[in-house]
């Protein structure tokens, strides 16, 4: 079953990178890596998938079930947290807002994730008071708490320290094992070497799809190969 489906998606607004006729889908339990050079439209694809942007042409369909109030676990590369709330309050905001959990229950659950990620002591700090790695892990905890069927992550391993990268990788593994789908954007695929999944290379607003790593490694295009690291 396709959790996310892009059909003939086009986008152009002058601010974000343009896209033309994009077609792909992400099945439950699958990973799709979206890669390409800077400015190729990876961020635009992620925002369209997360429902932050509306496509100019075509359709983006998210099959999340009617009862799913937060269908996407969105982990942007930068920002994405309310600056006047603590990391913990940011993490529980979606589930508390949608009344999926009581505030106390959500806080307890978020705390346990923060502890598991090794950032429990920073839970009450505000986003500006912590580094990129802690912020990224808190964003991941927010996504996990909402229990969405699809995760959308922009460059999750960029600028984070080695310990945070290990945690993020193990969480992503667990997400796939639980049957959730993952859409990952990355400038370079080298941090994900050996990972299973499909691949979507973006260039000039158009996309080239690769079913798996074998198909990708057979590619001779130098621009694609440059992104493989």
């Amino acid at each position: 079953m396709s959790l996310l489906e892009f059909r003939g998606v086009g986008f152009e607004d002058g601010e974000h990178a343009a896209l033309r006729g994009l077609d792909f889908s992400v099945e439950a339990g699958r990973r799709l890596f979206v890669f390409g050079r800077s400015g190729s439209g990876k961020g635009t694809v992620m925002r369209l998938a997360a429902g932050v942007l509306e496509p100019g042409a075509g359709t983006v369909r998210l099959e999340a079930g009617e009862r799913c109030l937060a269908p996407v676990g969105y982990v942007p590369r930068e920002g994405g947290m309310l600056s006047n709330l603590s990391l913990l309050d940011n993490a529980v905001l979606p589930v508390v807002y949608h009344k999926m959990m009581s505030r106390d229950a959500a806080s307890r659950k978020a705390r346990s994730w923060f502890d598991e990620f090794g950032i429990g002591s920073q839970a009450l700090k505000r986003p500006a008071e912590v580094g990129v790695s802690v912020r990224r892990l808190a964003l991941l905890a927010r996504g996990i708490l909402a229990e969405p069927p699809l995760f959308v992550l922009e460059d999750p391993l960029s600028e984070v320290d080695a310990a945070a990268a290990r945690v993020i990788k193990s969480v992503l593994e667990r997400i796939s094992q639980e049957g959730r789908a993952c859409l990952l954007a990355a400038g370079s695929l080298s941090p994900f070497e050996g990972w299973e999944g499909s691949f979507l290379f973006l260039r000039g607003g158009k996309a080239q799809f690769y079913e798996d790593g074998r198909a990708l490694s057979a590619e001779k295009d130098p621009e694609v190969r440059a992104c493989l690291g």
Binding site: G51, E78, G79, G80, S83, P94, H98, R142, V152
Partner: peptide, 17 residues
């Protein structure tokens, strides 16, 4: 304006808030 610049606005929309 800061919320727009920092992606806070987008994050709210992504979580259907």
């Amino acid at each position: 304006g800061s919320m727009r610049l920092n992606g806070e606005w987008d994050a709210l929309k992504a979580y259907r808030i």
